[in-house]
């Protein structure tokens, strides 16, 4: 890895010359790591915030439709009840569950709690997999209650 000549006194081969000319050890451990579920949870929270922003805009459109009277609302309801519309709402409810569980995990970790390996892994697993379970349950109940139908 070293781009220095051997006579520069770099027996480890881990020294690098930075763009500003300084010679310094390569950052340690940047090439020694493995995937952990906490990384998935962290990335998914960012994805969730992006998706929630899109969801908020769609909800704003829904409120705008209500404010635009019965005809406009009927059109939006028809779109929502179509298979593609139901798929979009399914995705948005998944985002909502993810926001709840992952947001709670984030708040607990931000408070300095649950940062030991066991708790962090458990909370990350809940934040990653919990929304998938809850959203299926939510929609099973919605269909069972006859609120939505295909």
């Amino acid at each position: 890895m070293s781009n220095l000549p051997q006579d520069a006194g770099d027996p480890t081969g881990r020294y690098v010359r930075h763009p500003n000319g300084h010679v310094a050890p390569m950052s340690p451990f940047t090439d020694v790591w493995r995937w952990h579920v906490t990384m998935t949870a962290s990335i998914l929270f960012r994805v969730t915030i992006g998706a929630a922003t899109v969801g908020a805009v769609l909800l704003l459109g829904w409120v705008a439709a209500v404010a635009s009277g019965p005809e406009a609302y009927a059109k939006v309801l028809a779109c929502s009840a179509s298979p593609i519309g139901l798929f979009v709402w399914f995705g948005l409810s998944l985002v909502l569950f993810s926001f709840l569980l992952n947001g709670t995990r984030h708040l607990i970790n931000d408070a300095g709690q649950g940062l030991d390996l066991k708790s962090a892994t458990l909370m990350a697993n809940i934040a990653v997999w919990g929304p998938l379970v809850l959203v299926v349950l939510f929609w099973v109940v919605l269909f069972a209650a006859g609120k939505v139908s295909l």
Binding site: L77, A81, W89, L96, F138, L142, K147, V148
Partner: peptide, 10 residues
């Protein structure tokens, strides 16, 4: 919001 979504669905 979740509860409201359930109430207002359809």
């Amino acid at each position: 919001v979740l509860w409201s979504a359930f109430t207002l669905a359809g």
